[in-house]
Protein backbone atom coordinates (compact mmCIF):
# COMPACT_ATOMS: atom_id res chain seq x y z
CA UNK A 1 0.00 0.00 0.00
CA UNK A 2 2.74 2.33 1.05
CA UNK A 3 4.87 2.06 -2.06
CA UNK A 4 2.01 1.70 -4.45
CA UNK A 5 1.88 5.43 -4.97
CA UNK A 6 5.63 5.92 -4.95
CA UNK A 7 5.57 5.92 -8.72
CA UNK A 8 4.48 9.38 -9.88
CA UNK A 9 2.92 7.99 -13.06
CA UNK A 10 0.69 5.66 -11.07
CA UNK A 11 -0.16 8.52 -8.76
CA UNK A 12 -1.20 10.71 -11.70
CA UNK A 13 -3.56 8.01 -12.93
CA UNK A 14 -4.98 7.59 -9.44
CA UNK A 15 -5.35 11.37 -9.05
CA UNK A 16 -7.20 11.64 -12.35
CA UNK A 17 -9.77 9.10 -11.13
CA UNK A 18 -10.27 10.50 -7.66
CA UNK A 19 -10.08 14.23 -8.29
CA UNK A 20 -13.59 14.78 -9.75
CA UNK A 21 -15.10 12.96 -6.77
CA UNK A 22 -13.20 15.09 -4.28
CA UNK A 23 -14.12 18.23 -6.20
CA UNK A 24 -17.81 17.34 -6.16
CA UNK A 25 -17.71 16.39 -2.50
CA UNK A 26 -15.99 19.66 -1.60
CA UNK A 27 -18.59 21.79 -3.38
CA UNK A 28 -21.43 19.80 -1.84
CA UNK A 29 -20.00 19.98 1.67
CA UNK A 30 -19.39 23.70 1.40
CA UNK A 31 -22.98 24.22 0.22
CA UNK A 32 -24.38 22.19 3.13
CA UNK A 33 -21.98 23.74 5.62
CA UNK A 34 -22.78 27.28 4.56
CA UNK A 35 -26.51 26.55 4.63
CA UNK A 36 -26.29 25.06 8.13
CA UNK A 37 -23.92 27.72 9.37
CA UNK A 38 -25.57 30.84 7.98
CA UNK A 39 -29.25 29.94 7.68
CA UNK A 40 -30.31 26.82 9.55
CA UNK A 41 -28.51 27.28 12.86
CA UNK A 42 -29.69 29.66 15.58
CA UNK A 43 -27.54 32.43 17.00
CA UNK A 44 -25.61 31.45 20.11
CA UNK A 45 -27.19 32.65 23.37
CA UNK A 46 -23.84 34.01 24.56
CA UNK A 47 -22.03 35.15 21.46
CA UNK A 48 -25.06 36.02 19.35
CA UNK A 49 -24.58 36.06 15.61
CA UNK A 50 -20.79 36.30 15.93
CA UNK A 51 -20.80 32.57 16.56
CA UNK A 52 -21.14 32.18 12.79
CA UNK A 53 -17.54 33.25 12.42
CA UNK A 54 -16.60 30.10 14.32
CA UNK A 55 -17.69 28.02 11.35
CA UNK A 56 -14.84 29.37 9.28
CA UNK A 57 -12.39 30.24 12.04
CA UNK A 58 -12.26 26.91 13.86
CA UNK A 59 -11.92 24.74 10.73
CA UNK A 60 -9.15 27.06 9.51
CA UNK A 61 -7.30 26.60 12.78
CA UNK A 62 -7.85 22.83 12.65
CA UNK A 63 -6.53 22.66 9.13
CA UNK A 64 -3.54 24.86 9.99
CA UNK A 65 -2.45 22.26 12.53
CA UNK A 66 -3.55 19.32 10.41
CA UNK A 67 -1.52 20.55 7.43
CA UNK A 68 1.56 21.12 9.57
CA UNK A 69 1.27 17.62 10.99
CA UNK A 70 0.77 16.18 7.51
CA UNK A 71 3.71 18.19 6.21
CA UNK A 72 6.00 17.01 9.02
CA UNK A 73 4.97 13.37 8.49
CA UNK A 74 5.56 13.66 4.75
CA UNK A 75 8.95 15.24 5.42
CA UNK A 76 9.86 12.39 7.75
CA UNK A 77 8.81 9.82 5.16
CA UNK A 78 10.73 11.70 2.47
CA UNK A 79 13.89 11.86 4.56
CA UNK A 80 13.84 8.29 5.86
CA UNK A 81 12.47 6.30 2.91
CA UNK A 82 13.35 8.74 0.15
CA UNK A 83 9.77 8.47 -1.00
CA UNK A 84 9.52 10.84 -3.98
CA UNK A 85 5.84 11.63 -3.58
CA UNK A 86 6.11 12.39 0.13
CA UNK A 87 8.54 15.13 -0.74
CA UNK A 88 6.14 16.63 -3.28
CA UNK A 89 3.22 16.29 -0.88
CA UNK A 90 5.08 18.25 1.79
CA UNK A 91 6.03 20.96 -0.66
CA UNK A 92 2.46 21.12 -1.97
CA UNK A 93 0.95 21.25 1.53
CA UNK A 94 2.96 24.21 2.82
CA UNK A 95 1.20 27.05 0.95
CA UNK A 96 -2.21 25.52 1.71
CA UNK A 97 -1.39 25.23 5.40
CA UNK A 98 -0.01 28.76 5.45
CA UNK A 99 -3.24 30.01 3.86
CA UNK A 100 -5.34 28.25 6.49
CA UNK A 101 -3.16 29.73 9.23
CA UNK A 102 -3.56 33.17 7.72
CA UNK A 103 -7.34 32.67 7.59
CA UNK A 104 -7.41 31.52 11.20
CA UNK A 105 -5.56 34.71 12.16
CA UNK A 106 -7.77 37.06 10.13
CA UNK A 107 -11.06 35.49 11.16
CA UNK A 108 -9.85 35.30 14.75
CA UNK A 109 -9.08 38.99 14.63
CA UNK A 110 -12.49 39.78 13.12
CA UNK A 111 -14.10 37.68 15.85
CA UNK A 112 -12.01 39.38 18.52
CA UNK A 113 -13.08 42.91 17.65
CA UNK A 114 -16.70 42.56 18.88
CA UNK A 115 -15.76 40.09 21.62
CA UNK A 116 -12.68 41.75 23.08
CA UNK A 117 -13.07 45.22 21.63
CA UNK A 118 -9.71 44.99 19.87
CA UNK A 119 -8.51 43.65 16.55
CA UNK A 120 -5.69 41.82 18.17
CA UNK A 121 -5.40 40.41 21.65
CA UNK A 122 -2.46 38.25 22.67
CA UNK A 123 -4.78 35.35 23.26
CA UNK A 124 -2.91 32.07 23.66
CA UNK A 125 -4.50 30.44 20.63
CA UNK A 126 -4.07 33.39 18.33
CA UNK A 127 -0.46 33.80 19.43
CA UNK A 128 0.27 30.14 18.78
CA UNK A 129 -1.32 30.50 15.34
CA UNK A 130 0.93 33.48 14.64
CA UNK A 131 4.03 31.48 15.53
CA UNK A 132 2.76 28.61 13.38
CA UNK A 133 2.41 31.07 10.52
CA UNK A 134 6.07 32.03 10.92
CA UNK A 135 7.04 28.36 10.90
CA UNK A 136 5.20 27.91 7.59
CA UNK A 137 6.89 31.01 6.15
CA UNK A 138 10.29 29.72 7.24
CA UNK A 139 9.63 26.36 5.61
CA UNK A 140 8.55 27.91 2.32
CA UNK A 141 11.40 30.43 2.30
CA UNK A 142 13.97 27.71 2.91
CA UNK A 143 12.39 25.48 0.29
CA UNK A 144 12.83 28.22 -2.31
CA UNK A 145 16.24 29.44 -1.19
CA UNK A 146 18.38 27.01 -3.19
CA UNK A 147 19.21 26.82 -6.85
CA UNK A 148 18.96 23.06 -6.64
CA UNK A 149 15.37 22.13 -5.72
CA UNK A 150 16.56 18.83 -4.23
CA UNK A 151 18.65 20.69 -1.67
CA UNK A 152 15.75 22.96 -0.82
CA UNK A 153 13.36 20.13 -0.15
CA UNK A 154 15.85 18.25 2.00
CA UNK A 155 16.81 21.27 4.08
CA UNK A 156 13.20 22.32 4.57
CA UNK A 157 12.23 18.74 5.50
CA UNK A 158 14.68 18.85 8.38
CA UNK A 159 13.31 22.26 9.36
CA UNK A 160 9.73 20.98 9.28
CA UNK A 161 10.62 18.12 11.61
CA UNK A 162 12.49 20.43 13.99
CA UNK A 163 9.51 22.78 13.92
CA UNK A 164 7.12 19.90 14.54
CA UNK A 165 9.03 18.84 17.65
CA UNK A 166 8.91 22.46 18.78
CA UNK A 167 5.20 23.09 18.21
CA UNK A 168 4.07 21.49 21.50
CA UNK A 169 6.85 23.28 23.39
CA UNK A 170 5.88 26.61 21.85
CA UNK A 171 2.21 25.92 22.55
CA UNK A 172 2.98 25.08 26.18
CA UNK A 173 5.15 28.16 26.70
CA UNK A 174 2.63 30.49 25.04
CA UNK A 175 -0.16 29.10 27.24
CA UNK A 176 2.03 29.60 30.30
CA UNK A 177 2.95 33.14 29.25
CA UNK A 178 -0.69 33.92 28.53
CA UNK A 179 -2.00 32.83 31.92
CA UNK A 180 0.69 34.95 33.58
CA UNK A 181 -0.26 38.08 31.73
CA UNK A 182 -3.98 37.93 31.24
CA UNK A 183 -6.94 38.12 33.58
CA UNK A 184 -8.92 34.91 33.53
CA UNK A 185 -12.17 36.72 32.76
CA UNK A 186 -11.33 37.13 29.09
CA UNK A 187 -13.62 35.06 26.90
CA UNK A 188 -11.61 32.19 25.55
CA UNK A 189 -11.94 31.68 21.86
CA UNK A 190 -14.23 28.82 20.96
CA UNK A 191 -16.18 29.28 24.16
CA UNK A 192 -16.36 26.87 27.07
CA UNK A 193 -19.20 24.65 25.94
CA UNK A 194 -19.90 23.70 22.37
CA UNK A 195 -23.62 23.53 21.77
CA UNK A 196 -25.15 20.83 19.63
CA UNK A 197 -26.56 23.46 17.27
CA UNK A 198 -23.03 24.77 16.74
CA UNK A 199 -21.51 21.35 16.41
CA UNK A 200 -23.13 20.14 13.21
CA UNK A 201 -22.26 23.13 10.99
CA UNK A 202 -18.80 23.15 12.53
CA UNK A 203 -18.21 19.50 11.70
CA UNK A 204 -19.56 19.81 8.17
CA UNK A 205 -17.38 22.84 7.54
CA UNK A 206 -14.42 21.01 9.05
CA UNK A 207 -14.90 18.11 6.64
CA UNK A 208 -15.42 20.57 3.77
CA UNK A 209 -12.12 22.27 4.57
CA UNK A 210 -10.42 18.87 4.65
CA UNK A 211 -11.72 17.79 1.25
CA UNK A 212 -10.85 21.22 -0.13
CA UNK A 213 -7.31 20.65 1.14
CA UNK A 214 -7.17 17.23 -0.55
CA UNK A 215 -8.46 18.72 -3.78
CA UNK A 216 -5.87 21.48 -3.89
CA UNK A 217 -3.21 19.04 -2.71
CA UNK A 218 -3.91 16.75 -5.68
CA UNK A 219 -3.65 19.67 -8.08
CA UNK A 220 -0.44 20.93 -6.52
CA UNK A 221 1.20 17.49 -6.47
CA UNK A 222 0.27 17.03 -10.13
CA UNK A 223 1.89 20.40 -10.78
CA UNK A 224 5.08 19.37 -8.96
CA UNK A 225 5.25 16.07 -10.85
CA UNK A 226 4.79 17.89 -14.15
CA UNK A 227 7.36 20.54 -13.26
CA UNK A 228 9.88 17.82 -12.36
CA UNK A 229 9.30 16.21 -15.74
CA UNK A 230 9.83 19.53 -17.47
CA UNK A 231 13.07 20.03 -15.55
CA UNK A 232 14.28 16.54 -16.44
CA UNK A 233 13.50 17.06 -20.12
CA UNK A 234 15.24 20.43 -20.14
CA UNK A 235 18.33 18.91 -18.54
CA UNK A 236 18.33 16.13 -21.09
CA UNK A 237 18.02 18.56 -23.97
CA UNK A 238 20.74 20.78 -22.52
CA UNK A 239 23.14 17.84 -22.16
CA UNK A 240 22.29 16.73 -25.68
CA UNK A 241 23.09 20.23 -26.90
CA UNK A 242 26.54 20.11 -25.33
CA UNK A 243 27.58 16.95 -27.11
Amino acid sequence: MFHRFANPARFLRFAAVIQPWIAGLTVLLFAVGLYLGLLASPADYQQGETVRMMYVHVPSAWMALFCYTGMAISCGVALIWKHPLADLAAKATAPVGASFTFLALVTGSLWGKPMWGAWWVWDARLTSMLVLFFLYLGYMALNNAFDDPGRGSKASSILALVGFVNVPIIKFSVDWWNTLHQPASVVKMGGPAIHASILSPLLVMGVAFTTYYLWVLLIRIRREVTANKVRALQMRQASRGEQ
Partner: peptide, 10 residues
Protein backbone atom coordinates in the same frame (compact mmCIF):
# COMPACT_ATOMS: atom_id res chain seq x y z
CA UNK B 1 -19.59 43.93 9.26
CA UNK B 2 -17.57 41.35 11.18
CA UNK B 3 -19.25 38.18 9.99
CA UNK B 4 -19.31 38.94 6.28
CA UNK B 5 -15.69 40.07 5.96
CA UNK B 6 -14.69 36.85 7.76
CA UNK B 7 -16.57 34.73 5.22
CA UNK B 8 -15.37 37.02 2.44
CA UNK B 9 -11.71 36.68 3.25
CA UNK B 10 -12.06 32.91 3.57
Amino acid sequence: HFVWPAYGVV
